[in-house]
Amino acid sequence: MKVETKSRITVFILAALVWFALTDIKDFQEVIAGLVLAAVVTLLAGKFFITTTKQRGVPHRIIAAVRYFFNFLWEMIKANVHVAFIVLHPMLPIKPGIVKIKTKLTKDSAITILTNSITLTPGTLTVDINPDSKEIYIHCIEVHATTVDENTQQIGQRFEHILAEVFE
């Protein structure tokens, strides 16, 4: 199956589901209108949704996504405690700076989720991204390492390996 067809079918199903969630499903008029409008949306904006093919099957990816969610929550709690410790510390031991990390992810959505996760965890903030060389610039509240590889190990690797299973 071509990627565009797959994308359009996915958008059609999702649009119909959203429409049924918005309206009363017992009314047959709403169902007809929902199907027609889902078709309109599919024709108009259906081809953007999926642009690349994934290697693994859908169930495996869903399980990986759930695992990623809990992993992300755990990292978030750790980072929150860390930043709270820094803020409450009387000496305020911060060492801010901008670091560069490299990522091995290739898909756009994976990079987007990675950068958003880095921004959401307290203490780190994505500043800019270079899509050609896969480099992400991050503002850190506490810089430990100076080389690119060490920073990648500390900041990026936490999320990267599960994201690779979800999206690659």
Partner: peptide, 24 residues
């Protein structure tokens, strides 16, 4: 940047559907 592009790509159909819902 890439992030804005990806989020737009994934959400534009939803916005259009919502607009159609409001019109109808």
């Amino acid at each position: 940047t890439l992030i804005v592009k990806t989020v737009t790509r994934l959400s534009v159909w939803l916005i259009i559907l919502y607009g159609l819902y409001i019109i109808l």
